[in-house]
Design a protein around this nucleic acid. Structure first.
Lengths: 193, 193
DNA sequence: TTCTTTTCTTATCTTTAGATAACGAATGTA
DNA sequence: TACATTCGTTATCTAAAGATAAGAAAAGAA
């Protein structure tokens, strides 16, 4: 697991042994059981999540309905808005598979960044990259129909379709579960012709 | 204009006079006429944009149709994916109003960041903030109907509805111009009852 | 195992978005 | 000014999504 993390970090900065040890000494690795709620609506957390293994999910409850908006799997990171805006969380974060996460508190994170400018650089590059990706994703979402979005998802994140229940995928695709089921049936029929 | 910039920066870091002068010496301010294309599809640019005044817009051309995906107005920033990924741009960036932009090259940007860690910190905070906002936006988009998205836009960015042609707003909302026109009519009728 | 809950599908009906065309209004240009 | 282009609305038709209900299959718990 540590190796995975360092390999990931090496895409942004080069760490020496000492720096690696500093990072490990922070003791950020956590095993989390499937079904665990990491963040509740209304809660005021300072924790960010980096997924080393498993899958976590963000969802809102609107009109009594769960609205899933994102999944974070291996090597993906989530800093909930409540962390930076210091307001109660609008959504839930739950663990969808037994997972190994790196959970870091924003206060200690800031400290580390101050002591090790390298980490600051890494964080900057990483968030710039995530922002660019997020915008592209959003662009694709806006310019596609539900069916295209589903087909696109099959291409881009085939694993998600296997590891996540369909009704969660549905709201992730911006549609209802019933609609996704129909749409899938339609695709199969059309492919036969 | 410089004052506006420094005021914005002060939300993230504190600059002394010397640092302000360094920033100004980079000579990044540009006046851009309405209608100017800042970035073409297929182009390999290294420029990022920060809007001090005016409005710029990103759009794709898909099947001969313009698909507008984003607007950037006062104090908003755009680093096109081609800048960081070093691949040809997938979209266009055009100037929708006479504007004053801060246009910075990613190479010189990196240099400045190296010399002034403060800028690095600012960039990190700024992109983290933008990422959080972008995700919230995307979440709201996914969990709303076209009509709710339009009403939401009226609340959140009332200026856009005034300053941008409706057919561009439409694809920004993920729908066709005809559909937006209809939806607006529907809202008016429903409000009368 | 049995029972319950969750998940997915299918069907019906209603609502709304997409495609296309036609029209008037506004805008820009010669 | 006259002309052309762009822009927004409206109407028609089609296709697909939302709401709701019902049922089967799968998963989880007692």
């Amino acid at each position: 697991m540590q190796e995975l993390l360092f390999e990931f970090i090496s895409k942004y900065i080069t760490l020496n042994e000492e720096e690696k040890n500093v990072l490990l000494s922070l003791d950020l690795f956590r095993s989390v059981k499937k079904g665990t709620t990491l963040l509740n609506e209304g809660q005021n957390s300072k924790d960010s999540y980096f997924v080393l293994k498993g899958c976590i999910r963000t969802y809102y409850i609107k009109g009594g309905e769960e609205k899933t908006t994102a999944f974070f799997t291996e090597m993906e990171a989530l800093t909930p808005p409540c962390v930076t805006s210091q307001t109660p969380s609008e959504y839930y974060v739950s663990c969808e598979e037994d997972a190994i996460l790196l959970i870091s508190n924003s206060d200690t994170g800031e400290e580390v960044n101050l002591k090790f400018p390298k980490f600051e650089i890494m964080c900057r590059k990483f968030s710039e990259e995530l922002l660019a990706k997020e915008r592209i994703n959003f662009d694709e979402f806006k310019t596609s129909s539900p069916e295209q979005r589903y087909l696109n998802l099959i291409q881009k994140r085939p694993d998600l379709i296997q590891r996540v229940p369909q009704h969660q995928l549905a709201s992730y695709l911006g549609i209802t579960p019933v609609s996704l089921s129909r749409l899938r049936a339609r695709i199969i029929v059309n492919n036969k012709n």
